[in-house]
Design a protein around this nucleic acid. Sequence first.
DNA 1: GACAAACTATATCGAACGATAGAGAATGGT
DNA 2: ACCATTCTCTATCGTTCGATATAGTTTGTC
Lengths: 232, 232
Amino acid sequence: MADPPASSPSSSPPTSATRRRQARADATRLALIEAAVHEFAAHGFEGASTRAIATRAGTHQPQINYHFESKDELWRAAVDHVFAKLDAALAAHQIEGLGADEITRDRLADAIRAIVRAVAQLPELNRIMIQEATADSDRLAWIVERHTRGRYDLLAEAWGSLRRRRLVADIDETVVYYALIGASTLAYVNAPEARRLLGDHAIDDAFVEAHADGLVTMFLGPEPAAGGASAD
Amino acid sequence: MADPPASSPSSSPPTSATRRRQARADATRLALIEAAVHEFAAHGFEGASTRAIATRAGTHQPQINYHFESKDELWRAAVDHVFAKLDAALAAHQIEGLGADEITRDRLADAIRAIVRAVAQLPELNRIMIQEATADSDRLAWIVERHTRGRYDLLAEAWGSLRRRRLVADIDETVVYYALIGASTLAYVNAPEARRLLGDHAIDDAFVEAHADGLVTMFLGPEPAAGGASAD
DNA sequence: GACAAACTATATCGAACGATAGAGAATGGT
DNA sequence: ACCATTCTCTATCGTTCGATATAGTTTGTC
């Protein structure tokens, strides 16, 4: 039969009656998820084959339907996985409080730098996002409501607050959101292209730091430096 | 047999001996190319099926192998087609002279505005680019050498010239290239996501103009305004 | 240490994929 | 007006897709 653990998060204690054990299963699930992240990011949902994912994970294709209900459910698990990794990478910086009204230019500058560093080391997330966002689908609806909207609201509130206080340029939140995400992620999303265009070494740590500094300058202006914010 | 016109550009005069006629064939080829642009943009090369392309073009699937050598060759024809449309959209503005040393801030500002307007009405181009750029392949190598490199060099020279003359912020050309392309295109590449996130009406003409103005401000700074350009 | 449950591995299903063969319909050249 | 050529359409090829059935293996619990 095909109706095993399915959608059980890894938080279930070893209840005696209903279920028994997971030792190797957890390893298989994790290997499948990480292989799926790589394959979905590289080839898109339709282009990634379950056999390629299973082979990369070092197991066999039917394991996907055993540990996950379907290719679709594996995709969802993979997306949740990369967003969890993003949150972990951003946790060191206080991204959560971004929407608060006392947001400052320097807080947003720190956030931008943190975002650039995070997406640079996690290109698969934005590759998957962009592969899905090019056409409407149930998967896009799911990812927008589950992962995108909250993050958009956070950034829009932060920018709106700074904008109302004339601490940043008078640019619409919607414009800033897509400009910032696009400007932050494309070099890493398109890393295979960048390697061909600029050479293997082009997208290194020095690039990431120059990129972070450059985006801060572009979005927040050159350091406020001497007292007066250049409003009005 | 399968060895018809294949890779004949539409520039061959009606030579009497070898070939005969193309009236409906040209219409079929064009319909296939435009359908292919849409399907490849939405689903990627591997995700787009030749049957879906043929159906959208109002014809049958084997026509693809008759008019083009393979799915791969159809993809190349589709990519050339969208880049030709981009060039047509940019032709009104003098993008070509961008690399010249006498480039000015205002010339680049005009170019940025033109690019934003062009990619807004041609989202398929950047969708295809980004779908291919997420993984290395022969197709990526082809597209980089054929279409990307020249455009990159043009922008890099323009920015470098302005940067040396201190007319723009001191940011690396490589950073600026990916930041500008990303910031210009993501809202249109991700239009299906933007509709879910912001509503159906969000990415309209007003957005495009606000976007163009916003990018000019971010990349070139607020208008030089009062007389003196700040370089010696 | 035995046994039932959980997990893994092999075999195979029907559907969809890109590509080809060849019959049929349309058309420019004479 | 005819005909050779070009283009279109139907049928079908071999392969690969996601999914399932089922046999085999491992392991926590008693």
